[in-house]
Amino acid sequence: MEQIFTAMGAKYNYVAYIILMMVGLYAMIVKSNLVKKIIGMSIFQTSIILFYVSTAYKTGKTIPIVPYDAHAAVQAADFINPLPHVLMLTAIVVSVATLGVALALAMKIYRQYGTLEEDDIHEDLRSEEGKS
């Protein structure tokens, strides 16, 4: 048991990403309000970004901007790994794009049913089907 805790201590970032991911997933599964679900989705996506950024970190090293000198030899070990950062820039953009589309859909749904609660919408639909 203690081993697990020491291991977690050295990897607390990964634990945080898992907690956030689960918070997002919980909101997406359980919450009935659409905006809440959308916020949960964003939390879910940021947690993955946190994971990638954590993998790039090197203790005590500097940000990945090398000295402005074409002839100086660069010691790659002195800099934080830039590749995951690039990947995550893309992921952030994707997440804001998804957020925009999701909110647009949510507004369209609100216009159609007058509510943002998924439960209520399903109830409406069921009673409509019962009528026809």
Binding site: I4, K11, Y12, N13, S54, T55, Y57, K58, T59, G60
Partner: peptide, 11 residues
Amino acid sequence: YAMDFPDFGDG
């Protein structure tokens, strides 16, 4: 499965 990861900040 995260227990297999390299430690945080491992260069």
